[in-house]
Amino acid sequence: MANSGIIIFGELGAGRLSSITLELLGAGRKLADALGQELAAIFLGHPVDPVVREAIAFGADKVYTIDNPALQEYLTEPSVAALEAACRQLSPEVLLLGQTAVGRDMAPRLAFRLGTGLAMDCVHLEVQADSRLLVATRPVYGGNALAEMTCPSARPQMATVRAKSQEALPRDDSRTGEVIPLSVSLPSSRSRLVERVRQEAAGVKLEDAEIIIAGGRGIGSAEGFQTLEELARLLSGAVGTTRAAVDANWRPSSDQIGLTGKIVAPTLYVAIAISGASQHLAGCSGSKNIVAINKDPDANIFKAAQYGVVGDYRKVLPAFLNKVKELLETS
């Protein structure tokens, strides 16, 4: 039987469809239209929040749900088994997941289980005109190169998609579609969740911030970040960082921006004492404006920035901060 249809794996956050899910629906809709096939979203959980129906307003033709006690908290084995069962029942042509904590854990196991090919962390998806294959473009070598991949014969063609790389559709409540529960039986899991600790962001969440003040190894100490904190507070922004500063224990890993950290796309990204390694730029190159402060005029960050100051941040930043204060007070 020929495979048909696009399925996106949906995730929820704070009782709503997460932003990556809306982006997957936007990307999936385009592929579905190009192939003349249906777009479905699938959600796992226990219970499955009825809010998943909103996927229809954001582009899905159908929503599948799998409700099972083993899916209450995310664990690899039951979730992979649930999606495997869904793929065997529904035979999709394309399956997309987000490059999220869950997606990057689950997608490779699922692809190997289904005996199919998978492109991770894709930033562009397109249907090739003649072959009708999915062409998935993914950054490789830390972002120094882009690779266009296809999965010529095995099905479904699978990809995980990088956050903020795809456009969501505007909500359209006039769209109609069905919510269909699937029943599957799941094996018992060989792993168990012992505890899960979530740190709540004190101010604005990094991923949602319109202004990010980021500091790197050149900041030199945890205390050095105080001026950055003050600037971020003043501008209702958030503080971000590089892996170097996380490894030095100056900042928590939840502040890390980049290939193996968070993907951000603020209006203004101020990169202070950051060299601009490709793996860091992978997380912030979608910013609308990058401002670099670095003492090395040849630092790679100046190749990604629109505005720059060459100088010691210890001298540049306090003066910048004072001027910003002054400007905000007089306006």
Binding site: P139, A145, T150
Partner: peptide, 14 residues
């Protein structure tokens, strides 16, 4: 299972 069609350097023009 996958095929590499093309590998290229992204153009960054800022």
């Amino acid at each position: 299972k996958t095929n590499l069609l093309k590998l290229y350097a992204p153009v960054r023009e800022t």
